[in-house]
């Protein structure tokens, strides 16, 4: 799904104080940005920078105070076609807190209820959604979501959104609270949804390493403005931007750049510790040979 924001501002209306109806400062200020179909886009910024508000505009939970949000070229707000927002899947922080059914099947099927589909169609869709998040249908369908591990619960919550066949998937800090194997598995899943099903994926992250490893593009939001829009590698190695956010450059970028400065090729520019060790030891060996 292509998303286009033109001059989008958003202001939360303050409680009317006495006579004057005061307006709060703008949370989002004149944003112009296009997100292309099939992107794997990370959004970063401080708490309170407007990230959550931005995401809520894309799902239609909020309408912009000024400007327009187009989904595949149509403005659902002004064209009175709010159903277009149904194509946007939204996964909140800690989505497993919202699981409530007695079985995994019922939880995932919940969103399909309003469509009044025949039982076998529901089953088929739930099965497909569970497969796409790599939960074995037969093994998990009758289990209680509450007895699953943290990573599994989160998969159930994601399946409950994927089952509605969105074109855009928005995730608010999807790896918060997950251990490393669950985080790795979750990103494998997101890449698969992105590559195989062509889902556009937008996620908010506070983990810069995660952004470097998984995003094709990074939008960095500060005080309601995107102050950076580009490749994660370029953005997260820019000293001015890093300083603006108080971020530390991810170590993978620091080490890769050091190697480049010394004339040692660093491949993709974001070497893992193991890759960096291999490159360094090879370089040291070659130098030793030359020295002899």
């Amino acid at each position: 799904m292509q998303i286009q924001l033109s001059d989008v501002s958003f202001i939360y209306e303050k409680k009317k104080k006495k006579k004057a109806s005061a307006l709060a400062p703008a949370v989002l200020k004149q944003l112009n940005v296009t997100i292309h179909s099939g992107e794997m886009l990370a959004i970063a910024g401080k708490s309170g920078s407007g990230k959550s508000t931005f995401l809520q505009l894309l799902k239609g939970f909020l309408a912009p105070t000024t400007g327009s949000v187009l989904l595949d070229g149509v403005d659902p707000n002004t064209s009175k076609r709010p159903e277009l927002f149904d194509q946007v899947g939204f996964i909140f922080q800690y989505p497993e807190h919202q699981l409530f059914s007695t079985t995994v099947f019922d939880d995932i099927a919940f969103g399909l209820q309003s469509a009044k589909l025949p039982r076998e169609v529901v089953e088929q869709k739930v099965r497909k959604a569970m497969e796409s998040v790599e939960l074995d249908y037969e093994v998990f369908k009758d289990r209680s979501p509450f007895e699953l591990s943290g990573g599994e619960k989160r998969r159930v919550a994601i399946a409950g959104v994927v089952v509605l066949e969105p074109k855009l998937l928005i995730l608010d800090e999807p790896t918060a609270g997950l251990d490393l194997p669950s985080r790795t598995a979750l990103f494998e899943l997101l890449h698969q949804l992105n590559e195989k099903q062509g889902l556009t994926i937008i996620w908010v992250s506070h983990q810069l390493d995660e952004i470097v490893n998984h995003a094709s593009r990074l939008l960095a939001l500060k005080n309601g403005i995107f102050i950076a829009d580009g490749s994660p590698e370029a953005t997260l190695s820019d000293p001015v931007l890093l300083d603006a956010f108080g971020w530390e450059e991810p170590s993978a970028l620091v080490v890769s750049r050091l190697l480049e400065q010394l004339g040692i090729s660093s491949g993709n520019g974001k070497l893992s510790p193991e890759e960096a060790a291999a490159v360094i030891s090879t370089a040291l060996n070659q130098q030793q040979i030359l020295a002899k």
């Binding site: 251990d179 194997p181 991810p250 170590s251 993978a252 050091l258 510790p273 193991e274 060790a277 030891s281």
Partner: peptide, 28 residues
Amino acid sequence: CGLELPYYHALALALQAKGVSVPASLGI
């Protein structure tokens, strides 16, 4: 146990495994 060493600690261990002598508290 699902834990990832901080980058420089992992790099130091990986270098040591390749026979490069570096301290465990390696920095840039």
